[in-house]
Design a binder for these strands. Structure first.
Lengths: 188, 188
DNA sequence: TTAAACTACATTGAGTTAGTAGGAATTAAA
DNA sequence: TTTAATTCCTACTAACTCAATGTAGTTTAA
């Protein structure tokens, strides 16, 4: 059930860009992201390329260039990022919503493994498709401010801007977990 | 978030052995399992070997030999099988309970990715550590009986033996999902 | 004695992962 | 107009994992 390093790095970089946006920093260079997150710079370059092609981020080339989010952070779900880098969320193909694949078992409708893995896939998707970059950014910043940790991407003591909150999505039921506890208004 | 083929095959084989036990069949040969589930036989042999070494199954060598579960099906959690074959359930090492590993991020306590992935790991473990082989076997047999599908590993029309139910585990909260819906007494 | 099963271990081809390398193109500023 | 800093593009690769396959046993019931 692993997330690849590539996927992890992509998420870290995007979260950083989300923080940068929130903190008022217009552009961030790959070198800075790589240094902050201890990611090999050339590897991260490739990843940023991919994220750009898929429309998650935009770039400014040339000196003092860099990257920024191409959309508001609350329009980028974590699930869409993970799917791009690591493929379907489902543990096995026959329970994937976005990339169904018939499995080898003789009778799919009576397959206990399939029922079980469908629950797992729904649990995973229930979290990753529910939360957006904005959620993760907000939780991170909230924790940092609470603990008086200096915010990244800002030399100033981080003027408290009104955070861009995740759009209400009543179609999705709340989920138990740390994040939802940190968002009391998300709970039932 | 993939389950490997090896892991899938191991689960299929163990579920089959659980069904066999439930249906009164003392031993099942690798060849029969491989044929039923369309698994390459030599590959499955390896897997059975491993499952035996780890105490999930026992073997009877020689002609008319085969495999059977080494413990009651309700004492074998799905999570323990997946961990054996595919390693920790956690998407990243820094949220694994059974195999914690420090990650590269500079500040783990303020890492938004970590908080998110902790939720994911808990969601996965909440399912896979909650359900046992007995649960999956029971759901499978129930569905098959409901649909009048002939049960595997039994020529006779499958005398309805009292099923070995999963021991009550009040420490674990119920989980939403297909399986728990099929076990009404598991719901709150 | 023989056939059917498990046991043990070696090998392998394809693909994936996690990078590394080198330079071309672009841009802002000096 | 030059220079430095940045993204962009393409190729390469070592190591590892996955998913088997192969070969040669050993054990046991009939």
């Amino acid at each position: 059930m692993k997330l690849s390093k590539k996927g992890e790095y992509a998420l870290r970089a995007l979260i950083d860009l989300g923080i940068a946006a929130e903190v008022g920093r217009p552009l961030v260079q790959v070198s800075e992201l790589a240094a902050k997150e201890l990611i090999p710079i050339k590897f991260l370059e490739q990843i940023m390329q991919l994220l750009k092609e898929e429309g998650f981020i935009e770039s400014q080339r040339g000196k003092f260039g860099g990257y920024r989010l191409a959309r508001p952070a609350n329009k980028i779900t974590i699930g869409s990022i993970v799917r791009l880098i690591d493929g379907p969320l489902a543990p096995i193909g026959c329970v994937s919503h976005t990339a169904y694949e018939k499995c080898s078992c003789p009778d799919e409708t009576h397959c206990g493994l399939r029922m079980l893995m469908l629950d797992v896939r729904n649990a995973i998707a229930g979290i990753l498709d529910r939360y957006t970059l904005a959620d993760v950014v907000e939780v991170t910043l909230r924790k940092m401010r609470r603990d008086n940790v200096p915010l990244p991407f800002s030399d100033a003591p981080a003027a408290r801007r009104s955070p861009v909150r995740n759009a209400a999505r009543p179609d999705l039921k709340p989920v138990e977990g740390i994040l939802s506890n940190l968002f009391p208004d998300y709970s039932i």
